[in-house]
Design a binder for these strands. Structure first.
Lengths: 260, 260
DNA sequence: CGAAGGATTGACAAAGTTCAAGTTTGGTGG
DNA sequence: CCACCAAACTTGAACTTTGTCAATCCTTCG
């Protein structure tokens, strides 16, 4: 049974923030406009002033920083269920491009509608805010990864992150998942050359850490990969400690959902 | 005449978000508790669950990601007027340490009080959210900088960023400002060794781009440094395009303040 | 004055890049 | 179903950039 992208998005929100029935319904009944983008095509271009956010349904999208010399650096990868441009709600002038890395289906959600929700339900505004903060926390890790780790560790870390995130949204697991990025794109994410990504990937295979077939990454030894990648999933998970600005009546707490 | 840190913080908020008199007064009347930290001492340690945010009054603070092998990467530098842990309002479990890079004075502001404001004034909640988003946008640039630029460019970019940010808060200008970080700390921010930072800095001096005396950075040729650093200040500035979740009655627009 | 932290230097090593040439793969039209 | 094309992946050799280590100098501060 196929789960709608809005449901995935809502799951993520409620995993991190408490939302009551009414608020959840409100999210689920957001109007959306389907769209798609082939590999390498911009979903949002830099300099634009957006009036909508993009909810990934399937595929893979990346946020690209462009250098004046033409080099590129991916600063974020967006998986299905990610509401990519949520931050554009409060800062509509985007500084970077959002590009599909592989054929990608998405839904446009208008700022106007999102704003209406945020106005009507402070708890939703807070959930949106928290979502942005979690994204920033992933971004922080990205800086650490790219700044201070050698290539092997960097790639290991990225693979771990993706495995956990894919598992969170129910696509694959930390034993295997589908990675819709080319080695060149991985290089752009890691601050490495495609050539070097290739070589490092080979050593990981040779050492029996991972295997690949087609677009599938198979993690043969999770524990060793975690150690190699210096990975600590804390920044991705909702550790149960959830800040609350403390909005609205009728607040309800959830039990955690994934027995991770 | 000395401007209070709260006023600096408010200036930043109102530069990015419209706040009416009442809301501004509310910010200014926040209760604060002074604190200080010597160079290299933690202000907030990783794993803690904070109940307050930290407003920098003077000095310099940095957010450190720690690797398991002991290496460190600075993911953000915080100047006076920065409310460092605003994001902890919605995610109180912090993943990284906040450390003073030089003797630093700061003010603690309790989450409780900040939450009260955010509840009472949706426009303030939105301003806080926007502040977090701007921080994330700086973080994005940081990823690009560290991931894809060579050492010269990286250092050039960081110097440009700091010059602009110092100018924004009225400490120094893009012709000169005080940089309270050691070369080792710069290395931690740039993903480079202290030794290499030193050498690169020397070439910048030799080429007549910058001069240093004591803790002061003097930028001799701003345009050339901007070109070298591949710097575009867009991500720091409030481009006039300001998203509005559109909260509260009595919204008022400001004219821009700094004729940048 | 002496200690400590920070800046500077040099010789060398290592990690990653560049370039340029294959090889494989997947998809498309005939 | 095959031939062909483009994109992705792989390989090797030479080359750069940055890191490492270890010593020395300089400044600040008690």
């Amino acid at each position: 049974m196929k789960i709608s992208a809005l449901q995935l998005f809502l799951d993520r929100l409620t995993d991190r923030s408490a939302l009551n029935i009414e608020e959840r319904e409100a999210i689920l009944s957001l109007k959306t406009r389907p769209a798609q983008a082939g590999a390498h095509v911009d979903i949002v271009s830099p300099g634009e002033i957006t009036d909508h956010a993009c909810l990934i349904v399937s595929g893979l999208a990346g946020r690209f920083g462009q250098l004046h010399n033409g080099m590129r650096q991916i600063t974020a990868l967006h998986l299905p269920g990610d509401m990519c441009d949520l931050h554009s709600l409060v800062r509509p002038k985007v500084g970077w491009s959002l590009q599909a890395l592989a054929p990608t289906m998405l839904l446009h959600v208008s700022h106007q509608d999102l704003r209406r929700l945020a106005q009507a339900y402070p708890a939703i505004a807070e959930a949106f805010w928290r979502d942005c903060v979690v994204d920033a926390s992933i971004l922080s890790q990205w800086v650490v990864n790219v700044g201070r780790r050698d290539a092997r560790t960097r790639l290991g870390h990225l693979l771990c992150e993706l495995a956990v995130r894919m598992e969170q949204i129910g696509l694959g697991s930390r034993r295997s998942f589908t990675l819709l990025a080319t080695q060149t794109q991985l290089g752009d994410a890691l601050g490495l050359t495609a050539v070097h990504v290739n070589r490092v990937m080979q050593t990981l295979r040779r050492e029996g850490l991972i295997a690949t077939q087609n677009r599938e990454i198979i993690i043969l030894d999770w524990d060793r990969l975690v150690r190699l990648g210096d990975f600590d999933s804390g920044y991705l998970e909702n550790s149960g400690e959830r800040g609350a600005v403390g909005v609205g009546p009728d607040r309800r707490r959830f039990a955690g959902q994934s027995p991770c």
